[in-house]
Design a protein around this nucleic acid. Structure first.
Length: 522
RNA sequence: GGCCCCAUCGUCUAGCGGCCUAGGACACUGGAUUUUCAGUCCAGGUACAGGGGUUCAAAUCCCCUUGGGGUCACCA
């Protein structure tokens, strides 16, 4: 039997990073066994703009290279793949259960149910359905129908027994059916509930392995009962641990975004969000933040890195393998090596994976993506000229491994702004130019001596500066920092001579003049 | 509260009775290199939640306690 797994997102307009991890495990398991991975859209709630709400999700799958074999946009033999279009299947399945006596129509009002529940709570006994409607005579039932009384369809839970599942990661888990209230499977308007629709669809799609987050473990009891009632074969289950927020054991949730901002382990990501998103004309909002997949793409993470990090969250191959490509994962993924405890997303580790995979990419990719970000930030003019491209190539080369994510490049705006617009890091300016007594005069005579520098190549600049410091009787460190701050405004960056070469003669001299003037005026 | 799940370094994890004076990765700390930062290279610290069993032997098996989490809808 060929392995078939599925992921069933609700069209919400964004793809949660934790959900992506679940989807990844499903995809990996299907690919590992040469089976199919299906995308089904759980749009049982009416959504205003389905396409707009779905696109970000499909985009996230495409970005990570998790192609689906059946589902939206490509269809498949068992469609439709939108639950909103599968109403007839749910109705038919419910009718079968009604006919077989595995389900019953319940005429109790929501108020009655609520009262039952409260009564049970008051008496400190577990609530189970009272089943008044089951006592109704045929005549009474007919009367209810005749007067048009609303009713729901409930599954008749077989009490006095247990249900159990042999879960791939949890082992055997058992529930006492006597404690399970009869679940509603069809609302009074005839629409199906999640637990029911899911099972009907999983049966129809011939899903062999249900791999989902552990918060669904409890649902499994009811779903198992539905499979039985439907007389359908049950798939295998694997309840994987949820992804926790950095440094916590709580489920990563978009609702906690406010808290995450002040979470020290998550800070690094929000710092990136705050510093680069606005420059790219984007806002950190409900759809774009460190909980969402799109964030990592926008900010310039590599899909390989995100995929690798996600795969290592709750799963490992052995005691040493950390870096794994998609292909490698497909060949080696296994459910029995999924851990049971919740795993917290680790921004530091994600950056480490990013650094590794960035190193695997050829420099052209880095140039291309940095260029795109510079254009987006308005630092490089739209149709990129050969000249701009050549400059960025040199900048990126000089920056080397300082570029972690592609958007880091927008933090090096000093190479793109007009000399007059250069912003100085105040602390650095103070420390390197104002404070040291000799800094300003040194800078001034260096600026003069620069006239004699034969060329503005890094090599000539270095030879020249070394000659200069010898003549002045000072050390390299006595002036290097002042020059750097004066010309770039920053305390750190590429090697100084690379910086100056990149800026070129005119800009370097001009910026030196401006900095000297500024320091003298102070 | 009922039901269910979970528990090894700060984090992700290895460990499925002896190879464990607990291994790796990230992070961290110190040193080296460099004009700064990043990087690189060495070095270092840090963990089996607690208590009972079982066993010649327990991080590994069982029980209890504690702690953490999930779930209890005419949501998904």
């Amino acid at each position: 039997m060929t392995v078939r797994t599925r992921f069933a997102p609700s069209p919400t307009g964004y793809m949660h990073i934790g959900g992506m991890r679940t989807a990844l495990f499903n995809w990996l398991w299907a690919r590992r066994h040469g089976g199919q991975f299906i995308l089904r859209i759980d749009d049982t709630d009416k959504v205003r703009n389905l396409d707009a709400a779905l696109q970000p999700i499909l985009h996230a799958f495409r970005w990570l290279g998790l192609e689906w074999d059946e589902g939206p946009e490509i269809g498949g033999p068992r469609g439709p793949y939108f639950q909103s279009q599968r109403g007839e299947f749910y109705a038919a399945a419910a009718a079968r259960l009604l006919a077989s006596g595995a389900a019953y129509r319940d005429y109790d009002t929501p108020e009655q149910i609520k009262a039952d529940r409260e009564a049970a709570e008051k008496e400190k006994r577990p609530y189970i359905t009272v089943r008044r409607s089951l006592e109704l005579s045929d005549a009474q039932r007919a009367a209810c129908e005749a007067e048009g009384r609303p009713s729901v369809v409930r599954l008749l839970v077989p009490r006095d027994r247990k249900v159990s599942v042999d879960d791939h990661v949890r082992g055997r888990v058992e529930w006492d059916c006597g404690l399970i209230p009869d679940p509603v499977i069809l609302r009074s308007d005839g629409s199906p509930l999640y637990n029911f629709a899911t099972v009907v669809d999983d049966v129809a799609f011939e899903i062999t392995h249900v791999i989902r987050a552990e918060e669904h473990l409890t649902n499994t009891a009811v779903q198992l009962l539905i499979y039985e009632a439907l007389q359908a074969p049950t798939p295998e289950f694997a309840h994987i641990p949820f992804v926790a927020a950095p440094g916590t054991t709580r489920k990563l949730s978009k609702r906690e975004l406010g808290k995450y901002r002040t979470n020290p382990q998550f800070k690094r990501m929000f710092d990136v969000a705050d510093s680069v998103l606005p420059r790219l004309g984007l806002a950190c909002d409900d759809a774009l933040n460190p909980v969402m997949v799109a964030f990592y793409e926008e900010v310039g993470f590599l899909p390989e890195a995100v995929l690798n990090a996600l795969a290592r969250l709750g799963w490992s191959l052995d005691d040493r393998t950390e870096y794994m490509s998609r292909e490698f994962l497909v060949e080696n993924f296994s459910l029995d090596r999924v851990v049971k405890g919740a795993a917290a997303l680790d921004p530091d580790k994600l950056f480490a994976f990013q650094e590794h995979w960035m190193g695997q990419r050829p420099p052209e990719v880095k140039v291309e993506r940095c260029l795109a970000n510079l254009v987006r930030a308005g630092l490089v003019a739209a149709p990129v000229t050969a000249e701009s491209r050549a400059f960025v190539e040199r900048l990126v080369a000089a920056l080397g491994e300082r570029i972690k994510v592609f958007s880091d490049i927008v933090g090096y705006d000093e190479y793109f702004v007009a000399d007059e617009d250069l912003r100085y890091d105040d602390k650095a300016f103070e420390k390197r130019i104002m404070k040291p007594e000799r800094a300003l005069p040194l800078l001034t005579s260096y600026r003069q001596s620069l006239q004699e520098c034969p060329s503005f190549s890094a090599a000539d600049l270095e030879t020249h500066l070394r000659t200069f410091i010898d003549a002045q009787g000072v050390g390299l460190a006595d002036i290097v920092h002042a020059i750097r701050v004066a010309t770039t405004g920053k305390p750190a960056g590429p090697g100084l001579f690379d910086c100056l070469e990149l800026l070129g003669r005119d800009r370097t001299l001009h910026r030196l003049d401006l900095a000297i003037a500024r320091a003298s005026a102070a």
